[in-house]
Design a binder for these strands. Structure first.
Length: 344
DNA sequence: CCAATTTGACCACG
DNA sequence: CGTGGTCAAATTGG
C-alpha cells in the first residue's frame, strides 16, 4: 500500500523535475535573468534529490543521517534536515512518560533565490506573526520567532523560528513547530468567514471535519493526560481551500491530496498561491504544509521526549505518509511506546 | 484606527 | 546564572 503512494509521489517528483526543466528551457532566452535560471536549476536538482532519496529510503523511516549526507551536496534548495535537537534517546527515557509540550518539530533550510523578487523572509503560504527576536550565541544573525496569525482566532499553535545561516546568508534555516490547525482563508470565499469573528475560539464546522477524520483512529493513548494541543496539530491537515466544497465525506479524496501536494510543492507556474505574491518564481515551499503526518502521530503519541524527525525527503509527499500514518494510528494505542528501542 | 512589528522585560530550564 | 523562548507595551505602517 504504502509503496503505491510512494511510487505516485515519486512520479510526481520526477514530473516536477520535468516541468521545471521545461520552464528552464523557456528561460534560456537572454531576457531572463541568471538568477531565475539558477533558481530553476536548484529546484530541479532538489526535486531529483528528493526523488532519489525516496528511492533510497523506501517506505520506511530510517536514519535521517544518510539523507542529510546526501543532501549536503551542493544543491540546497529546500532541504530539510532531520530532526530533533539532540536528546539522546537512550538515556533519556526515564520518566518522560508525560510528554511535555513537545510538538512536532522539523527544520527546513531554504535558500532564497534573489533576483526573483523574493528575498529575505520567505513566504511559505501561511501567514505568520512575529512575536520576538533574539540574538543567539555563536550566531551572527538574530533568530526570529513567529507564530501563526490565527493563533487566537482559531487556536492554531503552529510556530516557526527563522534564522539565517552564518556562512551563507542566502540560506535561511526555518524551524517549524506544530502543525497548522487553522483554515487559511486565502482567497477562498468562505461564507462563514465573512464576519469578523472575534470571540469564537473554534470554528466548529470547519475544524470538526478535520478533527473527526483525524481523530478517527488515533488519539487516545493510555493517559489522556496528553493535551490535545499535542495531538491536534499533528493530525490536522493543511485543509486547502480547494477541497472545501467538493470534498465529499470522502476522506479528502486522494486525488485531491495528491494534486495539492503535487502542485503545492513548488512549481510556481502551476498554481499561483493565493497568498504569496505572484512572483514568477518565488519559491513557495508550500510543500512543507503537509509534513510528517505519520511521524507526528507516531512521535506525539509516544512518550519520547522528542521527535524523530520526519524523513524529509518525503516531505513533499504527505500522501505516502498519510497512508502510512493511518495504519499506524490503528495500531498505535496498543503499541508499546514505552519501549524506547523502537525509536532508536 | 487596526493590525503587525519591535524590543526590552520576564520566565523556564539546564 | 546564562541562554533561549515568550509576553506585552510601545511603535510603526497601511
Amino acid at each position: 500500500m504504502a509503496m503505491e503512494w510512494e511510487q505516485k509521489t515519486l512520479i510526481s517528483e520526477l514530473n516536477q523535475g520535468k516541468e521545471l526543466a521545461k520552464q528552464l528551457v523557456n528561460h534560456l532566452n537572454p531576457s531572463s535573468s541568471h538568477e531565475t535560471r539558477e533558481c530553476l536549476i536548484e529546484k530541479i536538482l532538489s526535486s531529483y534529490e528528493k526523488a532519489l532519496s525516496m528511492i533510497n529510503w523506501g517506505a520506511c523511516v530510517e536514519e535521517p543521517k544518510s539523507t542529510i549526507n546526501n543532501l549536503e551536496s551542493p544543491s540546497f534548495f529546500a532541504i530539510t534536515s532531520p530532526i530533533c535537537e539532540g536528546y539522546d534517546q537512550d538515556s533519556k527515557h526515564k520518566d518522560v512518560y508525560k510528554k511535555r509540550k513537545t510538538l512536532p518539530r522539523w527544520t527546513e533550510q531554504v535558500k532564497v533565490c534573489s533576483g526573483t523578487g523574493l528575498e529575505g523572509p520567505l513566504d511559505d503560504g501561511y501567514s505568520w506573526r512575529k512575536y520576538g527576536q533574539k540574538d543567539i550565541l555563536g550566531a551572527n544573525f538574530p533568530r526570529g520567532y513567529y507564530r501563526c496569525t490565527h493563533r487566537h482566532s482559531q487556536g492554531c499553535l503552529a510556530t516557526k523560528q527563522v534564522q539565517r545561516c552564518d556562512e551563507d546568508p542566502t540560506i535561511f534555516e526555518v524551524n517549524y513547530r506544530g502543525r497548522h490547525t487553522c483554515s487559511q482563508a486565502s482567497h477562498l470565499n468562505v461564507a462563514s468567514a465573512s464576519v469578523k469573528e472575534n470571540k469564537r475560539k473554534f470554528q466548529p464546522q470547519q475544524q470538526s471535519q478535520e478533527i473527526v477524520f483525524n481523530y478517527g483512529g488515533g488519539l487516545k493513548s493510555e493517559d489522556m493526560e496528553t493535551r490535545e494541543d499535542d495531538i491536534f496539530p499533528s493530525f490536522s491537515f493543511p485543509s486547502t481551500p480547494i477541497g472545501s466544497d467538493n470534498a465529499d465525506n470522502n476522506i479528502f479524496s486522494e486525488s485531491i491530496m495528491l494534486e495539492n501536494n503535487f502542485m503545492g510543492s513548488f512549481s510556481p507556474t502551476f498554481i499561483s498561491p493565493a497568498t504569496s505574491e505572484s512572483n514568477l518564481f518565488s519559491l513557495s515551499p508550500r510543500h512543507m504544509n503537509s509534513y510528517g503526518l505519520g511521524h507526528n502521530v507516531q512521535t506525539s503519541e509516544s512518550d519520547l521526549t522528542d521527535i524523530i524527525s520526519a524523513p524529509t525527503s518525503v516531505a513533499n509527499s504527505p500522501i505516502g505518509n498519510l497512508d502510512f500514518s493511518l495504519d499506524k494510528v490503528d495500531i498505535d494505542p496498543n503499541f508499546p511506546f514505552d519501549n524506547p528501542e523502537f525509536f532508536s
